[in-house]
Nucleic acid binder design. Structure first.
Lengths: 348, 348
DNA sequence: TCGGTGTCATGAATCGTTTCAACACTAGGT
DNA sequence: ACCTAGTGTTGAAACGATTCATGACACCGA
């Protein structure tokens, strides 16, 4: 049933070694032979068995990517950016969505290890990066995406979420808001905590501004709607006059609750700002102010950095004698700056 | 550097066969031995090499999934549904986005074949299913997702797009619209053509309704904005009084163009309906009417069907003698019904 | 004619796991 | 004491592509 190099070799009257060379080093084989072998391959419908190839090579031709949530257009864009760049480098991307759960993230990482991926891009679901550090120490380069390590242990491509949170909150304050509610969660997620931290800093500068926190279990539209409902049932006096949502999905949910299910006007009664600036932000009931992050570029850059890490790991292993590490000019922590995008939801 | 079963065997003072059994058939090994081997595994940080495992097994523990566009929340949901069900069955999902390009689709399918996946779920980018039929004939079960084959060659999980198109258009007509423009494309995509066909049928029943087509190169927000701009620049008299967009992304783009960049009111001047009913549809400037498809269920069902196909292929190969195929009770073409969701964009 | 040089092709060894026939040993029955 | 059944373990073969030392052959110049 299954045709292997051996069958192809017989059909083309050559040795298996030659078939392999046609596949991997065509320039080492006489043109006529190449043609004959390729015809045999086509005739027999031969498909290379990648498991055997990898087994021999000791490595695969793929990298792994674990994001927090496929359903979030921000991560979909990150994935696209990564995939495109990886394809350019001849690498396949194994993709996984952890849904913000550490166990699922771990399951994917284990799976990737078994696949002997060349490296892993991951947006960690929790603060505990130790397993990732261990993974890296064990020889699999790791690049954090949309997140930084506290120390220099891991390379990363991130956006300064504290600054983003600050920008968003500062903007609300500048628009005259004084009772701000931060909606987001879980707070075990670093990005969420950083954005909240940014908000706290902006508020700290002003004595007359209050910051309130509503923690939700996930960054989804559904949870946003829940959060909106929680705020709606409060009497008008105890409601905030502005909401900063930890991402656009939540903001969309809050907006649905306010504008469609309830009678709260945005931005008149309550201003609203989100985070990520996904494509839909500009098209919501009330166009959403947001903090833009260059999603695709983050994904693409993460792959570049991972390739550099892979090279570094390879060089470090091979040429320990020379001061190879000193020659490493590349920056291992790349940080993009977030950007405020003002739309109608904050009175823009 | 790399630790294998052999090293574990030595460390635990057992044979490699026993290590393998601890990994795959723990119940066949004495508890004390299991413990000793597992300790050795932990101590050495052994990670099973999946390439070797697959090589021996002849098959992998994964299935492939190719969708048209990761950026589309509809497909993100399909992927989620598929992934969850596959995980239940102990299978990993290799994921790819073709961006509606046949060459990219082909590249993914080839990659999956090399990985010896157990089966492939695919939303084909073109009409030409011959390569997929060939793939199936070569022993890799295939299930079409969100698309049906013309004959019974391939199993499928789909939604009747003609009916969906009909529902959408009928609704526009019922709302009093008479000059309808269908925005979508490329027409080489079957779903788009079917939805258009449904629209044509609804229009055909009425002599006083005109249907116009604006073909766009992709089903994205950006292209929707382009399409909206094309319509906006027309003088009011030659504009349609309703737009049926082939999916919600396009609809969102059209809406952005009309409501945010231009001065066309929805639904007063032009009614708008999309397709897929993604989460964001309810939250747009003017909440979007749409045709709902059960995305997650489609993904989950597709995996179920693929598992059935895999079993069928296995049985067909092994027990040809008996009338195994007759015993196959399962339906190979599963069709969900689309559902009209009326919101403000069509005056609901 | 001979040595030198380069081009092509060969095929056995190899990667790390799983499988399975064979074996060692124990416990229970007669 | 002997046989049977059952339980646990062994180790070599097999999976299929790649690698590489080896060799065959042709061509050129001396």
């Amino acid at each position: 049933m299954a045709v292997g190099v051996k069958d192809v070799a017989v059909a083309a009257s050559v040795s298996v070694g030659t078939v392999s060379n046609v596949l991997n080093n065509p320039e080492k084989v006489a043109p006529a032979t190449v043609a004959r072998v390729q015809k045999a391959i086509a005739d027999l419908g031969f498909v290379r068995n990648d498991a055997a190839r990898q087994l021999r090579a000791g490595r695969s031709r793929s990298i792994g990517l674990v994001v927090l949530d496929v359903g979030n257009p921000f991560f979909a864009d990150v994935a696209r950016g990564a995939e495109t760049r990886a394809a350019d480098a001849g690498l396949a991307v194994l993709f996984g969505s952890s849904d913000e759960r550490a166990d699922r993230e771990g399951a994917y990482v284990d799976l990737f290890r078994e696949q002997r991926v060349n490296g892993v891009l991951v947006t960690p679901a929790t603060d505990d990066l130790s397993s990732l550090v261990r993974l890296q120490d064990a020889g699999t380069p790791v690049v954090l995406v949309d997140r930084e390590a506290d120390d220099d242990a891991l390379a990363s491509v991130a956006v300064d979420d504290v600054e983003g949170g600050f920008l968003a909150t500062q903007h609300l304050i500048d628009s005259g808001r004084r009772r701000i509610t931060f909606v987001g969660g879980p707070l075990s997620t670093r990005q969420v905590r950083d954005r909240l931290e940014g908000a706290r800093r902006a508020v700290a500068e002003r004595a007359d501004v209050a910051l309130d926190v509503v923690e939700m279990p996930a960054l989804t539209v559904l949870q946003g709607r829940e959060a909106g409902n929680l705020l709606r049932v409060r009497d008008a006096a105890s409601r905030p006059d502005a909401v900063f949502a930890a991402n656009d999905l939540l903001a969309v949910g809050v907006l649905q609750s306010f504008a469609l299910l309830g009678d709260i006007r945005v931005p008149e009664d309550i201003a609203l700002i989100g985070y990520d600036d996904i494509d839909f932000a500009a098209a919501t009931v009330v166009p959403l102010s947001s903090i833009r992050q260059p999603a695709r570029e983050i994904g693409a850059t993460a792959v570049d950095l991972l390739l550099a890490e892979i090279a570094r790991a390879g060089a470090g292993g091979a040429g320990v004698a020379a001061g190879v590490i000193a020659a490493d000019t590349g920056e291992r922590r790349i940080r993009f700056r977030p950007e405020l995008v003002v739309r109608a939801s904050t009175g823009g």
